[in-house]
Structure formats: C-alpha cells, structure tokens
Design a protein around this nucleic acid. Structure first.
Length: 583
RNA sequence: GGGCGUGUAGCUCAGCCCGGACUAGAGCGUCGGACUUCUAAUCCGACGGUCGUGGGUUCAAAUCCCACCACGCCCGCCA
C-alpha cells in the first residue's frame, strides 16, 4: 500500500502546488524519521520559501490548507510540522495492507513486460569454485531473484570461457599427464579431479625443461588455432575438459543454490561467424587504427586512454572481441542485460561498452554491476592455478557443521514441542549454515572489499541470516500453535497498538523495497529491510499475544502474522536464503 | 603517473545516487537487566563517533563540487 499511497501523494501534491502557483517538478517527497507518525512527508516548503516570500512553516501551512485529503484513499490527514508537510495513513492503508499480505506472492510486482538477462559467475572452467569467486553467484542470484519479484522476465546465464589459452593449456595437460603423476584429489568430485591436470600443466610450463615447454607450447598453439579455425575435432577435445569441469562447478554452485537457465559458450560466437563479422565492422569504423600489425580502437572519446586491441597481429580474435558478439546476441533477444563481474574487469567493461556503442548498440540496455574481491587475510588473493584459497565447498561444509552444533546445543532448551527428527536437524543446519554465508555476502554493498575470515563469515549472531530466519520460524510457530487459518472475519482497526502499526508499516513498504532494489540493482537493500522488519516483528511478538488474545483480536492478529510471514519469507527468497518453519 | 572503487563507534556495516526533522543509526565486543508466557538463535538499558583531511556551494552537507591523504583493483596482441 506504500506504493499506492506514494502515488496519491505525488499526484495530489502536484495539483496542490500547481493550484498555489508553485513549480511542481520538485515535490520533495521523503520518508520521515521513525519517531514521526507520518508514512510520507514533503520538505518542499524549504525550497519554495524564497519564491513565496514567506518562511517555510507558512508555506507548509498553505500547502496543507490547499491539499485535498478527501481525494485520497490512503491518506487520513495532512499536517504541517514546522517546515514539513506530513502525510498520515488512513485505516484503509492498514486494512488493505493486511489483505494484500495474505497473498503468498506478496511483494511480487506486476508484470513489467520486459525481458532481462542476468549474466553472473561465468568463472573460467579451470577448477573448483573458491570463495574469492563466490560473491558473484551470491550477488548475481539475488539480483536475478529481485528482478523476477519486480516483474521482469528473467533469464540467468553463465558465459563459459571455453576458447581461451587457459582451456588450451588445460586440454593439453589433460591429454598429456597420467593420473599416477598427480596428487590425490581434495574432494571426490570431477572438478577436483580435473584441476590436478591444470595445476600440473601450469607448473610444467613455468618450471619444466626448455624442450618440454617448447613441445607443449606447440601443442597449445595448435589447439588454439583449431578453435579459431572452427576445427570440429579440437572443439570435441576441449569440450570434454570444459564440460566435465563445468559439471562439477555447477554442482557446487547448486548448493548455494545458484542455478542457470543457460550456459552460453564463447566458442559459439566463433563458430557462427559473428565474431568475425564484428571485427570486420569495427575495422570500418572511424575509431579503428592499424598499429603494430594489430587492429585497435581509439577510445579517447570515451575517456579511455588505453587502445582496445580487437584483432591480434596473427588475425585471431580476443576474449573481449568475442564478448562483443556475445553481447549483441543478448541484445537481440532481451530488452535489458545485466552482468555481474569482478572489479578487475573494470577497464574491459568500459571498452566493451564503448565498442558496443561504435557498433551502433544502445548501451543503455546494459548494466554492469561490479563487486570487490574476497581476499585472504594478509592480502593474499585466491587462485585456482596456484591452489590458494578457501573452496566454497569447504566453507559451506563448515557453515553447516557449525550450524548443526548450534541446533544441537539448543535442543534441550526448546519449549516448543514439535519433536525435531534427525532429518529436521540436518535440514535446519543446512538452511541456517548456507543462509548465513549468503546473507553475510549479499547484505553488503558489492563494491566493498571483503577479507575472508572464518569466524566473521560464520557469525550466527544478530544482523545475520539466523536472526531473520528466526522471525519466520516464530511467525510459523504462532500459526502452528493457533492451529488453523484465521477466519475471513478480521477487523484491521483492532490492530491499533504501536507495535502492530509499526509492523504493518514495514509490511506495507516491502513492494517499494523490491521496486527500488530492482531499479538500482542493489539486492543489499533487501537485506537491510529484513533487519528493520525483524525488529518490528520482534517488538510485536513481545508485546502482542496472539493465540491467547480475545477472539476478535486474535483473528486480526493472526491475519497480521500471516502477512508478516509471507513478507519475510519472500524477502528471504529474494536473498536466496531459506526460511525455516522451525529452528 | 592515469582510471575506477572504498574511507562513518575498538571491530563489521546501513545511510550518500535524489542535501532537510541527522542532536549521525544498527550489530559485534564490554557492562547491567528480562525465560512458570505464541521458541531467549529473542528483548531492554548503559558506554562508545573531529562521518579520512582541508576548502567551497547552500537557509541547510555524512550526502553536492574541488584539492589532498590512505587502502584496494585495473592500465597484456591474457581471460
């Protein structure tokens, strides 16, 4: 109802300002601080004071006098408080919020009739997913969820870099070394098995005998040429390595869970000739220069000093050239494209954007969300090739293990008699453990750098997933105890205490949080919201008994609890965090 | 050197895009309280801040502009 009320305030305030002869472009609508009863307020009187030749409070008074409250369903009164114009909610605001909240889909916005592709993770298929990369699927998945809630038609893509030198090295190594030359795999899954060849190959290339290295380089070059020229046999050889490693990584990401609608291979854009077409088109552009035997783009017009090489001196394409074809392909199929990528790709993403513009694309369609690295204490970075870093599998295992200990130590203190089975304990440990990891990462602005520390990543205290999950479990506990759904007869005017009203206000603004997060591409504001919401719910829980309340109050409060449960369940769903019914 | 990002309580972070009720909010930690009650993974209270520094714009700056400092990332015919 918040969105509806904001619409009313926007429209009526515009009319009011216009009637008073003021400009209407700046209406100064904002959310007042917590200790003010209003849902919305306007600070426009400040800025109009000069024009009106009157002090702000006088202007605010004039606006209040002119404002037509009767035209608004959700505004009870408008009042001036010093220079501010405050809009207070009507009974309908609260009762409609209760009604809207009964919908299990509450928070989902109407269909925007816009398709958007969210590309995230896209880690090179060289080995197990480590924590340094894990921020990408967690942020990307939450962003995709958020856009879905906001009414967009979302596809999730993983762009597979299967055409670069890394994969040629990997293929050569896989075909060259015997299993018995390698250490035991760290975990029984295919990518842990495979990465041993990759690491061995890189070690040999760095430290091996000259002759060995030369022979290897020749083979690697031949694989790369095979890929570039569209040789079927080469694709099959490389594809075997790529597909098996990727299969394992996919299982790992599935634990988060992060799932994809499509794995788009880079080689696809070589094979269909689109990369070559792009290169031809770029050569003809006014920004193209041929220098040092290579084709480059001069991008100073975009404030990029570094020239962008799009064809090597041997005539082969580069990663970013292929990515241009990839992006044009996305533009053809979707209305908008969002890419989540590490901050290391900052320059490349600027070059990509500029080149797409040169090719005549509307780059407004493209939104690149950058996130900072996750480093090890001491500033060491995580590397698949070097084998440094914390594996995501290990982090998740540890998180589940610690969560299980928490569940078990609390078992004896439980008041609620719902007899958790071993399977329940396992499930809760998984929900809480993985939820804590995801929440910890998604709750922060992605641009902040993170240093990985076990205890911090696995902190189950407040401002973490379990804190919010507990609210959901409490709401479920009440509904469980009340045994049965609330009757259709519910009178929202009975929900008139401060904790009830505060909770309703939080419920009411959930759709606005979804809308803002989707527009700004900031899933972390949903996490911030869940904390505010949890605070409001816990105050309600403390002060307003539900099950033992008089019948009419009980019915109203049960409906409120249902709305609260749906809200927090969906907010957690956006974040990709499970909502346990019991914990 | 250039580009991008970050800098808010001892620690981890919201708030900054779009200036206004901010006398800057949370959590952790510390100290002190609350379970015969719908789950205490909760709640209540206390302590804790030159919002990196300096200038500027404005009636009003954590928020906008400029300079500087610190840290991170990038500046490959790698991906």
């Amino acid at each position: 109802m918040f969105l509806a009320m904001r619409g009313e305030v926007e429209a009526e305030l515009e009319g009011t300002l216009s009637a008073l002869g003021f400009p209407t472009d700046d209406r100064g609508i904002e959310q007042p601080p917590d200790d003010v009863d209003a849902v919305l307020a306007s600070s426009v009187a400040f800025r109009l004071a000069g024009e009106a030749g009157a002090p702000p409070p006088k202007v605010a008074g004039d606006i209040v006098a002119e404002f037509d409250v009767d035209a608004c369903q959700y505004i009870e009164t408008v009042e001036a408080n010093g220079p501010y114009v405050n809009f207070l909610p009507s009974d309908a605001y609260f009762s409609d919020t209760v009604e809207a909240g009964q919908d299990e889909e509450y928070g989902a916005l109407p269909d925007q009739e816009t398709s958007v592709v969210v590309e995230h993770t896209s880690a090179n298929p060289t080995g197990p997913v480590h924590v340094g990369r894990a921020r990408n699927p967690i942020v990307g998945d939450a962003l995709a969820n958020l856009l879905e809630y906001a009414g967009y038609d979302v596809d999730r893509h993983y762009y597979v870099n299967d055409a670069g030198r890394q994969m040629a090295v990997f293929t050569w190594a896989y075909e060259t070394f015997d299993e018995d030359e390698l250490p035991d795999p760290e975990r029984d899954r295919i990518e842990y098995d495979m990465v041993r060849y990759y690491r061995k190959g890189n070690t040999v290339l760095e430290e091996g005998e000259e002759e060995t290295v030369e022979a290897a380089e020749a083979e690697i070059q031949s694989i790369m040429q095979g890929l570039e020229s569209g040789d079927e046999e080469t694709y099959e050889r490389v594809g075997e390595v790529v597909d098996s490693v990727l299969g394992g990584m996919r299982e790992c990401l599935g634990r988060l869970p992060a799932e994809f609608d499509e794995f788009v291979k880079e080689t696809r854009f070589i094979r269909d000739g689109s990369t070559e077409d792009i290169a031809t088109e770029l050569k003809e552009s006014e920004y193209a220069v041929y220098e040092d035997d290579a084709w480059q783009l001069e991008l100073t017009e975009w404030d990029i000093d570094k020239k962008f090489v799009f064809l090597r001196s041997d005539g082969t394409s580069l990663y970013t050239t292929r990515d241009l074809a990839h992006h044009e392909w996305k533009f053809q199929q979707y209305d908008e494209a969002v890419t989540v990528l590490g901050e290391g790709h900052g320059l490349q993403s600027q070059q990509l954007r500029a080149a797409l513009e040169i090719l005549g694309n509307d780059t407004e369609m493209l939104d690149q969300v950058l996130y900072g690295w996750v480093n090890l204490p001491g500033g060491e970075s995580m590397s698949t090739r070097e084998g440094t870093g914390i594996m995501l599998d290990d982090l998740l295992d540890e998180a589940i293990e610690r969560a299980r200990n928490e569940v078990e130590t609390r078992l004896d203190d439980r008041i609620r008699q719902d007899d958790l089975t071993e399977a329940d304990i396992e499930r809760i440990a998984r929900q809480v453990g993985i939820g804590a990891v995801r929440y910890d990462i998604v709750a922060k602005q992605p641009t902040k750098a993170i240093t990985f520390e076990w205890d911090r990543a696995l902190d189950f205290e407040a401002q973490s997933a379990p804190y919010v999950q507990y609210v959901h479990a409490r709401a479920c506990g009440i509904l469980d105890e009340a045994d049965g759904t609330p009757t259709a007869e519910r009178d929202a005017t009975l929900l008139d205490s401060a904790p009830e009203r505060d909770l309703l206000r939080e419920i009411a603004r959930f759709p606005a949080v979804i809308e803002e997060g989707a527009i700004e591409r900031t899933p972390h504001i949903v996490a911030t919201y869940t904390r505010d919401f949890a605070e409001a719910f816990n105050a309600f829980y403390r002060e307003c008994p539900v099950v033992d309340a008089p019948e009419d109050v009980r019915d109203a409060r049960l409906a409120l609890v249902v709305a609260a449960r749906n809200t927090i369940a969906n907010a957690l769903d956006v974040l990709g965090v499970d909502a346990p019914e019991s914990m």
